[in-house]
Design a protein around this nucleic acid. Structure first.
Lengths: 340, 340
DNA sequence: ATCCTGAGTGCAAGCGCTTCCAGTATGGGG
DNA sequence: CCCCATACTGGAAGCGCTTGCACTCAGGAT
C-alpha cells in the first residue's frame, strides 16, 4: 500500500503539503498541487481512512438507523440516502435495529459510540429518552425521517396532511361513508406515524361534518397481507354502506384491493380505494395514492446532514417536504346506489 | 470523551494493560481485568474505532455491495447479514452500486480502497475483470451471494437446481405443458442467475423427455409487474394447452397469479403456478415455491466471512446451501381436460 | 527603500489506540 | 534451594494521517 509519505517523496514535497493538496484545505500552489495529483494518481494512492479519521476527527461516514428493510418505505429511503452519500464521498453504515431490545441497546450504547459516523439519520423510529440522550451525547448532527422527536430535527412529511389529502379526494368524489385502515394501537408506542395518519383522516371528515363510523376503522401493520386481512373484515361486514376506503400505506391499499377482488367487490365501481406512499407497485393496481417522494426524502435528509457536517453550518431553512395526489383508477365518483 | 488513558489512570494500570483487558488479547490477571472492566463501565468508556483501526489494522466493519435494495432478495439477504454482523460486533457498510457506471467505478476504485472494511460480501452482481482485480487487490476476504465468480468463493445456492425442483414438482403432478417466466436476455451480461434458473427448467423437462415450447417462455425482470405482463402474454395466447407455469422468482409468480385472475383463469384448477424464493408475500397468494432461505444465506455469508477475518483461518468446509419445496395451494394435479 | 501582508511550504507534535519487548514475580521441577 | 518457564505488567514505538506554528519570499503600500 502506498502511503502519504511515498507520494510526498515521489513528488519532492513534504507530507504536509501532500495532505493539503489532496484534501483541499490550506494553500498549495497550482503547480505543486498539479504535480502531487499526478504523482498520487500514478502511484494509485488512496488515503487510509483510519489514519485520516484519527488525525482529523472526520469519518466521512453517515450512519443510518432503521427498524427494518423489507417494507417499501425503508428500502426506498435508504436508496435515496445511499445515492446522495456516495455522491458526496461518504460511506453509509447501516444499523438495523431489530425488535430485540438488546440489539437496540447495543446499537445506541456501543456501536454508535465508537465514533464511526459523522452524522446519523434515524428512519421511522420513535426514540426513547435514553436513546435520544445517547444520540445527543455523540455530539454529531442527527436527522429524523418518518417520525418525530421533541428535540431532534426532522425532515418528515406532514403525516396527517397526507391522509387528509387522500380522504379529501374521496370526499370530493362524493363519497360519504369512508373506511380507514391504519396502524394498530400497539405500534404507536414505537412509532407515531400511524396515529398521525389516522388523525388526518379524522380531520378531513370533521371538516365536512361527517362522523366516522368506528366499525369502519381497521387495523393493520402497513403490509399487503395486513391490509388484506383488515379490508376483508371491513368489507365482509354487511350493511355499512361504505363506498370509499383510505389506507395509510400503499401496501395496505393493495391488500385491500386484493381483498375486494376476492369478495367480488369491484374497484372503483363499488369501492374507491386510496393509499399513501407512491409505491412502485401502485401502478400495477392502478392505485390512486398520495406520493410522498420517499427516495427524495432520503436524499434530502442526506444532503441536509452532510452539508451540516461539511460546513459546520446550521441547517438550511427550506426543505422539500412535498407530497402530491396521484390519481389513478382505483378511485371514482361515488356510485348512485351504494353497494352493500 | 474518555480515553484509554483515562481508564488506565483511574484503574491504576498502564494503557497497555487496559487495551489487553478490554480486547481479550494477551494475558491479564483476573483481578486486574475485573478492576479495569469496572472502571471502564464506570467511565462509560468506548474505544475510538479510528485509533483502534489505525493501530491494529482491524476495522470491525463488513462491506456489502448490492445493485439495489427494493427487490425482496436483496433486502432479505441484507437483513440476514446485518443481524449477524451486529451480533459479532461488526458494523455494516452498504455500497449500493447503481446502474451508473461512474458510481460503480467510484465504489470499486475509491470507496473500497480506503480500507474501511475487513471483508466484503458481494450480492448478486456479476463482476467485471477490473472489479475482481480491484477486490483482490484489497487483500481481504470476499464472498459472493447470488451469482458466481471464477475466482471468488461464493455461498450461493444452486440456481439451476431450484427451478429444476420447482419444475419437477409440476411434472410429478402430471403437468406436461409447462410455461416458464425468467430473466430477459439483456440481464445475463450482468447477472448469471436468470440463465441458471432457466437451465434448471430445461433440465427437468429433458429428464422426462418433454420438449419445451419456445412460445411458452416469457421474459421479465423478476418483479411482480414484470411477471404480470409476461404471464398475461403467455396466458393470452390461445391453444397452448399450458397447465403449469414456473416462475424464476416469487415476485414474478405472484404477478402471474394476478394475471391469471384478471383473465379468469383459476389457480390451481386451470393453471398451477410455482415460484422460487420463499417470499413472505407468497403466503397471501398461497403460492407453492422453492424456499431458498435468503435471510439465512445472508447470515451464513456473514458468519463465514467474519470467522475468516477473526481467526485468519480458512473457510469452513461445509455450508448450508439448502432450499426446499414449500407446497401451498397454487399447484395441483393436472386437470382431466386441460384448459384452453 | 522599508514594512507589512499573505501565499506557500516544512517541521513536528499529536490523534488514541495496539503490540513488541523487556522486566518482575511466581511457582513447580529437579 | 536454585533454575527456568510462565503469567503479568509497563515502556515505548509506532499506525498514517492532519494541522498549528514558524519560516521564507514576494509584491504592494507607504
Amino acid at each position: 500500500m502506498t502511503s502519504l509519505d511515498d507520494v510526498a517523496k515521489a513528488a519532492g514535497v513534504s507530507a504536509a503539503t501532500v495532505s493539503r493538496a489532496l484534501s483541499g484545505r490550506g494553500n498549495v500552489s497550482k503547480a505543486t498541487r498539479a504535480k502531487i495529483l499526478a504523482v498520487a494518481a500514478e502511484l494509485d494512492y488512496v488515503a487510509s481512512s483510519a489514519a485520516s479519521s484519527l488525525a482529523s476527527g472526520r469519518m466521512r461516514n453517515l450512519g443510518v438507523i432503521m427498524p427494518e428493510l423489507h417494507r417499501w418505505f425503508f428500502n426506498t429511503v435508504l436508496t435515496g440516502i445511499s445515492a446522495e452519500a456516495t455522491r458526496t464521498g461518504y460511506d453509509v453504515t447501516l444499523y438495523n435495529v431489530t425488535a430485540d431490545p438488546e440489539v437496540r441497546q447495543e446499537i445506541f450504547g456501543a456501536f454508535l459510540r465508537r465514533r464511526r459516523v459523522d452524522a446519523v439519520i434515524v428512519v421511522a423510529l420513535e426514540l426513547s429518552d435514553w436513546e435520544e440522550r445517547e444520540l445527543a451525547r455523540l455530539g454529531i448532527p442527527v436527522v429524523i425521517i418518518g417520525g418525530s422527536s421533541g428535540t431532534l430535527p426532522g425532515v418528515s412529511i406532514d403525516d396527517a396532511a397526507v391522509t387528509e389529502l387522500a380522504t379529501a379526494h374521496l370526499l370530493e368524489l362524493g363519497h360519504e361513508v369512508l373506511g380507514f385502515i391504519g396502524g394498530a394501537e400497539q405500534f404507536d408506542a414505537d412509532y407515531k406515524v400511524p396515529s398521525q395518519r389516522r388523525a388526518g383522516f379524522d380531520r378531513a371528515l370533521r371538516a365536512r361534518d361527517i362522523s366516522s363510523d368506528p366499525s369502519l376503522i381497521g387495523e393493520a401493520d402497513f403490509t399487503i397481507p395486513g391490509g388484506f386481512h383488515a379490508a376483508r373484515q371491513l368489507l365482509g361486514t354487511p350493511g355499512t354502506g361504505m363506498t370509499g376506503l383510505v389506507a395509510a400505506s400503499d401496501e395496505m391499499a393493495i391488500g385491500a384491493i386484493l381483498a375486494a377482488r376476492e369478495l367480488g367487490i369491484r374497484v372503483p365501481e363499488d369501492l374507491s380505494v386510496v393509499g399513501v406512499d407512491g409505491h412502485e407497485l401502485g401502478a400495477l393496481f392502478e392505485l390512486t395514492t398520495v406520493d410522498q417522494h420517499a427516495q427524495n426524502q432520503g436524499a434530502t435528509a442526506a444532503k441536509l446532514i452532510l452539508a451540516t457536517v461539511e460546513s459546520e453550518d446550521t441547517y438550511p431553512k427550506s426543505l422539500d417536504r412535498s407530497f402530491d395526489l396521484l390519481v389513478r383508477r382505483s378511485t371514482a365518483r361515488v356510485p348512485r346506489e351504494p353497494s352493500a
